[in-house]
Amino acid sequence: MNALPIDLDLAWESLPALFDGLMVTVFLTVLPLIIGLALAFPICFARMSSRRALALPAETFVVFFRGAPLLILLYLVYYGLGQIEALRNGPFWIVFGSPFGCAIVALSLNHAAYMVEVLRGSLLAVPHGIVEASEALGITRRNIFLWVRMPLALRYGLKAYQNEVVSFVKGTAIVSVVTITDLMAVANSIFEQTYDPFTPILCAAAFYWAFVNLIRVGFTFWGGWLNRHNAEDVAMPGPGRLALARLAGRAKVMP
């Protein structure tokens, strides 16, 4: 038996297929990240609203799509929505009728629910005094949000966002259950052809690891750039940091 459990020839032969799988994984990461984030903003505003009629549905959304395992969400969208006659005959069947469409819908909803909590925590971490100072300067609420609250929330919530994105990427590995050939699925099919239990899966692991760590490095640079104003000093006040520590935990498991 080889010292390494990896068959180098097979690994080399599998590279192109694995790379195609990686591209599918990247695609299934990027698109739901965009859609989920776009959904998260209005839902977060509703969630933070003092009006019960807005806050309650938003909260229900978060509890359901954050609390349900992603695999069940995917089954629900893929098998469950097809049951609805109106949907099957409607124009959105282009989306719900295809595995890719279903995967993107399920992943986006799940990501949106997590991002609502990340956003909310980050916005709550912005010190009230700074918002008040902006109000006193006569800046409108919309501009305060755009130029003061959001830029600060981004800085406070970046770590939680990173954790969510990383765990989201790993979560995409289940899409093969709806016949999508992502990185995990390619590795599985090579296993089924060769019965080599290590080579394809360890190669896929290397691809996942590289992708995840590329994201980590990207976030580290982004964070460094955003926090150039306090490279030495800790400018964030105590209570804010505490709130954020909780938030980073709530978002998903710390890296």
């Binding site: 005094g129 008040e132 100072a133 902006s134 006193a136 300067l137 800046i139 600060l152 104003h229």
Partner: peptide, 27 residues
């Protein structure tokens, strides 16, 4: 009406100059 606070409440992500420029630019 201009207001000055006990705890300054400057925008930590902006330079001193940008702190001063923000309101005139936006308002």
């Amino acid at each position: 009406v201009g207001m000055v606070f006990q705890h300054f409440n400057l925008f930590p992500h902006l330079t001193a100059l940008e702190n001063c420029m923000l309101a005139p630019q936006l308002n």
